[in-house]
Nucleic acid binder design. Structure first.
Lengths: 278, 278
DNA sequence: GGTTATATATCGGAT
DNA sequence: ATCCGATGTATAACC
């Protein structure tokens, strides 16, 4: 882990710094006043302003303002960084083909330019995904409905892969579509496409049930499911159990710390900070 | 535009630096070895590694590794930053309620900590959105089909807002759904929901056409449109005209700076292969 | 605040 | 390479 930083460099010094960083495979940040020009899947222009530009060795580039989680301009991994000085000004360019795209960041002033040698082998471990919900149902199919028997996951159909395909207690085919969060009309439509595909596959004589599984459902989606003869089962992706209602105390105990203050303000804890722990 | 940077600060010095930056409304970056812990809509853990953490004055926080465009962990705008030192180590915490979420970044080592005073009043101007496609059709409805007359945009229905509602040359109701890029089955389903809603609204006697407008369509979606009696019209969102075939160069070039350094390849157009239309 | 749909979505898996 | 769906999607518009 090393950092190499130039403060208020000349554009030419910044260029040399950048090229060496690219060569080493470093991650780079540049902060300065710049304009941005993008042409590719869409086209955009951004006038002068102060921004933080991040260049990653995998070819990604991010241009961040002081607002939003999403960069104001960017390029995904796989692009090629290049830098140059034109008319005495640093130009950082990112290009790719397929699709043909170009992102230009033209600096009026470079306030800081840093190169970071990154060592990161850890992988993110995440709980609460749709895959977790699937595992819950497969390991205990009764949470879906008594007697449900999963037969296949990712079963292919004319409309795409069905999350879980199985049979109910009566041996009727069941299409199960999983969502990790509250579902709207598009999830209902997705389920319908799969059910329709199996109807076409099995013929009209064979009944096919469709069950949407998610922690909750919007009213419009629930109406649509009703109209189309589809079903909904409420399950939480983290627990695999029906979500707890919060209208009255139905707490499953989470012995949590008392909330110190109303929200209000900054609350930057002091140094010795013994703030609660989670 | 000012930058205030600490190199290899003590955790306590970094804390003071951070709190002053929060107070000023600066944007902040921290580079160092850290672990990350998230609990909210889902739950995640990330073991030790070198990352770039960006804190914005609007409450966003981004944790970036040296790969991907998407941060490995983050928090959207509106969250509250706080920092503290525990056991001699810098802890950066972001919290919000509704949903209840917490992100902790615990540093083993702080390599660099920078605060940026950002001045950015420019807004992004972007061309090629779905809104642009709509304007093209509204200003010249014949590009959709001869005699088409737009009557309403964002027309409400039981299934949601219809992009463009109008009549064809015969006075038949037309639902138009717009997409800025190649469409798949979900767009076809979306159109179907709107057409179904108008059928319920108008009754079975009244015919309702559904037209999906996009630069191209996948085969599975085209099949679905066929089955459901829906239509497709190929239009480019930037030009509002039928997309050009890419079998030969149709470069519209953009008299730009000469390409300074190596890497010459350019203009190998392609994009998304567009298939037929329906 | 919830709902709905868009996005230069990004990303991953399957074909 | 395209297709397809998941994402802690984020973001905006509308109610």
């Amino acid at each position: 882990m090393t950092v190499n930083t130039l403060h208020r460099p000349t554009h030419r010094d910044a260029l040399v710094h950048l090229e060496a960083a690219f060569e080493r495979g470093d991650m780079v940040t540049i902060f300065g006043r710049c304009t941005v020009d993008y042409d590719g899947r869409a086209t955009s222009e951004l006038g002068p302003g102060d921004r933080l530009v991040v260049l990653k060795p995998d070819g990604s580039i991010l241009v961040h303002t002081d607002e939003k989680r999403t960069p104001v301009n960017w390029q995904p991994p796989g692009c090629t960084h290049s830098a140059s000085v034109r008319d005495g000004r640093l130009l950082v360019r990112s290009t790719r083909t397929s699709p043909d795209e170009r992102l230009d960041v033209q600096f009026e002033r470079v306030e800081q330019c840093s190169a970071y040698a990154v060592d990161d082998r850890s992988d993110l471990e995440l709980v609460g995904s749709e895959e977790d919900l699937r595992q819950h149902i497969l390991s205990d199919p009764d949470v879906l409905e008594a007697g449900f028997e999963p037969l296949e996951t990712e079963r292919q159909s004319d409309a795409g892969a069905i999350d879980i395909f199985g049979e109910d207690a009566d041996g009727v085919a069941v299409v199960v579509e999983l969502k990790r969060r509250r579902v709207g009309p598009s999830a209902a439509s997705q389920l319908r496409r799969y059910v329709d595909a199996l109807h076409r596959e099995f013929g009209d004589d064979e009944p096919v049930r469709g069950v949407l599984v998610a922690p909750s459902v919007t009213e419009r989606a629930a109406d649509m499911l009703d109209r189309e003869g589809l079903e909904f089962v409420a399950l939480d992706p983290e627990t695999g159990e029906p979500p707890v209602e919060e209208d009255d105390g139905e707490s499953r105990d989470e012995g949590e710390t008392a909330d110190d203050d109303g929200d209000g303000n900054r609350d930057t804890d002091d140094g010795d900070g013994n703030r609660d722990d989670a």
